[in-house]
Amino acid sequence: MHSKATLGLKVAAMCGLLFLHLPILLIFVYAFTTEDKSYQWPPPGLTLQWFGVTWNRPDVWEALGLSLRVAAISTVIAMVLGTLCAAAVARFRFFGRETISLLVILPIALPGIITGISLRSAFNIADIPFSFWTIVLGHATFCIVVVYNNAVARFRRTSSSLVEASMDLGATYFQTLRFVIMPNIATALLAGGMLAFALSFDEVIVTTFTAGQQQTLPIWMLEELVRPRQRPVTNVVALLVVLVTFVPILAAYYLTRGTETVAGQGK
């Protein structure tokens, strides 16, 4: 095997990467355009004016606030449930173990619209009014798998003899949890939490079914895409959303870099 790639393969791979990135980069340019009625290219001029306009839009702030609150609470719930589930699946052999790992993955393996309409039907039948908590219920459900994937990979990599060694040296289950298990899985949990946050912050398909009248930031954007009101503001919000989601993704990457399973491979 020659260790150098052929030119054709190199070009195809690079073009593929460019295809993945150019459209996102385009958003960066549009956020500065002076044109406010159409999507004209190339932009007739560049301005920072729309950042100021966006700053003064209360609806954007409200949607952002709701998205952050939903993401934070969903992440906390998903981290607790995902970690418990990962610990059980990685450390015990029991009847129905395979079923549990399937059940965890199902909410993202099936199309989001299924999760969405299922939850909506259930809220309907159970007569639950839409609220902040109905959004959280949906988000936490599909965020569990992200935390679970990260945690289960780390549990498997951490030798089970560490737990035995700790107990052998006199530590109870609680001391072992605090002094051995937590320090060893902390970065994986944090990475899982970051990814769960990013997933929730960005989610729109399930949310449209569980939100009622409330607008998360993605719902706000969807409204703007379907019925554009002020395009430049949408451009600026799009740019900010990209930047905000990059932070947790990069953080998750650096937290788990160098380990066998780098975070983020199972969205």
Partner: peptide, 17 residues
């Protein structure tokens, strides 16, 4: 339980933290 036995173990993979 192991944490109350007057016995300590050297593990095959050493199990150092």
């Amino acid at each position: 339980p192991p944490y109350r036995r007057p016995v300590n173990t050297v593990f095959q993979d050493y199990a150092l933290f």
